[in-house]
Amino acid sequence: MDWYTFLRISHILGTVLGVGGSTFAEIFYTKYQKDKKIDPFEHDVLKVCISVIRIGLVIITFSGLGILVLWRLKMLGPDVFYSPRFLAKISVVFVLLFIALLTNFRLINLKLGSAISTASWYAAMILGIWRGLNLSYFLIMLFYVVFSALTYFFLEYIRNRTTKKVNE
């Protein structure tokens, strides 16, 4: 197996862990907060999900760095490095890393941070797969901001609905 294949497999694995981990973290959190209490077992399950997300983030960052090094050695140039889709993908991964730090320092509301993180994982996956996407960087980032806001309100709506059902 050559380096490029190994790095691409790792990159996809990191994305799978990140998208899967954040999806299940949201599902379990929504389910567990129905009674507005998180017991020790539920806390452990959420901790496992967060660990999976962090492992995914580390794998995606390092494999991405490796792919960039190979691209540099092949001298692929501005067409690849400065493409709006790729710059947007890198920005989204930076947001993911930044949100992870802010959450660790408790500088961001947990629900907001978690919604941005989930939206960012999906956005990174979509940008990675959608090779023919032909929009400017700012337009892609605008869609990303709108998508993050919609994810936050959607998750809030689902959480409020499930809590109301339990109270009834």
Binding site: L68, L76, G77, P78, Y82
Partner: peptide
């Protein structure tokens, strides 16, 4: 460094 790498072309 990323931007510099991107400016190198064949």
């Amino acid at each position: 460094g990323y931007m510099i790498s991107g400016a190198v072309t064949k």
